[in-house]
Design a protein around this nucleic acid. Structure first.
Length: 436
DNA sequence: TTAGGGTTAG
């Protein structure tokens, strides 16, 4: 396979910055870009006047792959007075490398000054390298030091929580949880994930799932780490149904996003995604999808249904009242709904995308175009003829259930051809047997 | 004015 090529022929600072931006992802993925990174570093070193910002970015570049990490260390020791940011870059890079903990620690100890970046790097370094108690000790030391109390934030706290979990130290974990609340740094997605993981492993699955719900309530999309936490909470507590529900929502989210790669211009792609968001209560995301469609000028075809009566085609939209016999149509549907309720039927409003009051939702769904067409068919055609309705989009689940019911009440055969297939409704049963 | 730090089953 052809590799993206990269050549260095840069002179100005802005060109060097641009070069770093382009080279960083390449080097991360592939050590064969190491020579290019070294050439860029050499060019940056010869730049006059020297720039601290640029040399720190070069440090970041070189430390992004184990192959050039020694170059980064050499560069650091060649700098006359490396600032706190230069040190932090290397401490974090060493902490990421498999055997770099001792060197990270040595460098941390040598630092003339430390800030919250330094502390979170050293705490997470120990947690990551299987030394959670040392990580907690660093966190406590940080809180004691004059420079350290200001360094206590979401980053250090999430590392400390993970360390308490790894150390199986329930008491430290609880203390940290209280501490985080007192400090007001508990409104953070990564802290939530760390807390969820901690409670899942403490055997408090309900508590763990609270954090998953926090993601949903706050309109944030749970990321892969949160999903892992929520699923393992379910696994530990034997919450099979809840676990499956979460699992399916992941699979649906992944599939819908893959659709954008394949068919970014197809309105159905957006509608599918919006439906999935709506089904898990992420109404902010539903609204976002709508806005994206609007900004791209992608419009969804409005749903319409039609029926041929007396050599004329009668077309209906949702909530349509323009038909001359609209009053009779709505009266008939209302009568049907009363009967349905008597039979214990409850409208399934999950098919409505908007986050509005429930009653309004029931009304929206109650007058979908296919029902209007079916109702018109009942009042406008003789009692023994089948009612044939067409719809440009797929029939909705609640309409499907309703038309089944209507076919039973009025004892008429109703045929609905939607964008996917034919549905033959007779005696309260559909030919698709509810599978379509 | 920039840049550097966090959470993870099986």
């Amino acid at each position: 396979m052809k590799r993206p090529s990269f050549s260095v022929s840069v002179t100005t600072a802005s060109q060097l910055h641009d070069g770093i931006d382009r080279l960083l992802p390449l080097l991360r993925a592939d050590a064969s870009h190491a020579p290019a990174a070294r050439a860029l570093a050499a060019a940056a070193a010869s730049l006059r006047p020297p720039s601290t910002f640029l040399s720190n970015r070069v440090l970041h570049l070189l430390s992004s792959h184990p192959a050039t990490l020694p170059d980064a260390l050499a560069l650091l020791s060649s700098l006359p007075s490396p600032d706190v940011c230069s040190y932090n870059t290397l401490v974090a890079a060493l902490a990421r490398s498999p055997r770099g903990l001792a060197s990270a620690r040595a460098l941390f100890d040598r630092m003339p000054l430390r800030d919250h970046f330094s502390w979170s790097a050293i705490v997470s370094a120990h947690a990551r390298h299987g030394q959670p108690r040392a990580a907690l000790a660093f966190y406590r030391r940080m809180l004691r030091e004059p420079e350290g109390s200001g360094a206590d934030n979401e980053f250090t706290a999430s590392s400390a929580l993970a360390a308490a979990t790894a150390a199986r130290c329930v008491r430290s974990g609880r203390e940290l949880h209280c501490h985080v609340i007192r400090r007001g740094i508990d409104a953070d997605a990564v802290v939530w994930s760390a807390l969820a993981d901690m409670y899942a492993k403490n055997g408090q699955s309900e508590e763990a799932l609270c954090y998953f719900n926090m993601f949903l309530r706050s309109g944030l999309r749970p990321d892969r780490v949160m999903f892992v936490g929520a699923l393992s909470a379910c696994a530990h507590a034997g919450l099979v149904d809840k676990g499956l529900e979460i699992f399916h929502s992941i699979k649906d989210e992944w599939a819908a996003e893959a659709l954008f790669e394949i068919e970014p211009e197809n309105p159905a792609t957006y509608v599918t995604l919006a439906n999935i968001y709506a089904s898990v209560g992420l109404f902010d995301e539903v609204e976002n999808v709508r806005k994206i469609m609007e900004s791209k000028g992608i419009t969804k075809m409005p749903a319409s249904s039609w029926i041929e009566v007396g050599k004329r085609v009668h077309v209906f939209l949702v909530g349509d009242k323009s038909h001359p016999r609209a009053e009779e149509i709505y009266a008939l549907l209302k009568k049907m709904y009363v009967k349905m309720r008597e039979e214990g039927y409850v409208a399934d409003i999950s098919f409505v995308l908007h986050d509005v009051e429930e009653e309004q939702e029931e009304q929206d769904i109650g007058y979908h175009s296919e029902r209007l067409a079916v109702a018109f068919g009942i009042i406008a055609t003789p009692g023994d003829a089948p009612i044939k309705v067409f719809k440009n989009l797929r029939i909705c689940g609640d309409c499907h259930a309703t038309i089944k019911f209507i076919s039973w009440i009025v004892q008429r055969e109703i045929i609905v051809r939607d964008s996917n297939r034919f549905h033959h409704f007779k005696n309260g049963i559909c030919s698709c047997r509810d599978y379509w």
